[in-house]
Design a protein around this nucleic acid. Structure first.
Length: 289
DNA sequence: CCCCCTTTGAAGCCG
DNA sequence: CGGCTTCAAAGGGGG
């Protein structure tokens, strides 16, 4: 079943231009299967994709429901004590962030996002903080009991390790800020699902990957800019946080598999553009700004 | 229950 | 410094 959907997704992908330059993962592509897709018999996805590709990619108009869910309509509605609740510093109102906060209804280029520390999609506070029953969940913090973390402990077999586990559970995990592509995925996922009637994320992500490559530099630049602000916001929210905090918490993938899908010099330095997206007005790293 | 899959990009790790 | 690895999201599939 999974393969079938991937295959059908692949059929859709065949209507898309291959990513320019690196980033191709030949072995990750399922074998070409001919015939109509059971998931998208009408070829709506393909048509939609072609339509999209033939048009100036523009107006990423809609937030995904999920993103919208996190969106804060007005920055001033952010509770002043949220940082206290979470033991973090309130973000500074730097000129950069001031501009950022002003993006509530508009735009980093038409993008309706508000990626604020309140709305930050990677900030998910699992439950209210004691003493703040009405605490608004903060989207970057999750209880470390997520699937990537520890097993729920068993009271009947409470060992030292489990006690430790319990401790860990109570300690929220601050997630990585989303990169440009992740932001793009979040926004476009629902649209692709609607068009293609696919639901499996692996297949959807393949389509989104192709669409990403089909975007114009300007279009991608919006997301790079958003991502840059996300990172900056994250840095200000969690000054001491490092990605290493979450390093090694997930089970490792098989090395072979991973190398198949990640090899190939497509790395991108902080604040720079990879490949095709390398050109638009440079968004200098915040350390430079 | 929880990992796998799949994508790109950022960042950590290691030789 | 360069190459490799991990983790961000998502949700169906499968062990």
């Amino acid at each position: 079943m999974y393969k079938e959907t991937v295959y059908s997704a692949f059929n859709l992908l065949m209507h898309y231009p291959a990513p320019s330059g690196t980033g191709q993962h030949p072995q990750s592509q399922p074998p070409l299967v001919s015939g109509p897709s059971s998931q998208c018999p009408s070829g709506a996805c393909c048509l939609a994709d072609q339509h999209k590709a033939s048009q100036p990619p523009h107006s990423v108009p809609q937030l995904s429901p999920l993103y919208e869910h996190f969106s804060n309509p007005h920055p001033t509605q952010v509770p002043a004590d949220i940082s206290q609740r979470q033991g973090v510093h309130r973000p500074l109102q730097t000129p950069e962030l001031s501009g950022f906060y002003s993006l509530t209804s508009g735009s980093v280029g038409q993008l309706p996002h508000t990626v604020s520390w309140f709305t930050h999609p990677s900030l998910v506070l699992g439950s209210g903080v004691p003493g703040h029953p009405a605490a608004i969940p903060h989207p970057a913090i999750v209880p470390s009991s997520g699937k990537q973390d520890l097993q729920p402990y068993d009271r009947s077999l409470k060992t030292q390790a489990e006690a430790k586990a319990e401790k860990e559970v109570k300690k929220p995990t601050i997630k990585k800020p989303l990169n440009a592509f992740m932001l793009y995925m979040k926004e476009m996922r629902a649209k692709v699902i609607a068009e293609c009637t696919l639901k499996e994320s692996a297949a959807i992500n393949q389509i989104l990957g192709r669409r990403w490559h089909a975007l114009s530099r300007e279009e991608q630049a919006k997301y790079y800019e958003l991502a840059r602000k996300e990172r900056q916001l994250h840095m200000q929210l969690y000054p001491g946080w490092s990605a290493r905090d979450n390093y090694g918490k997930k089970k490792r993938r098989s090395r072979e598999k991973h190398q198949e899908s990640t090899s190939g010099g497509k790395r991108n330095a902080f604040g720079t553009y990879p490949e095709k997206a390398a050109a638009p007005a440079p968004f200098l790293p915040m350390t430079v700004l």
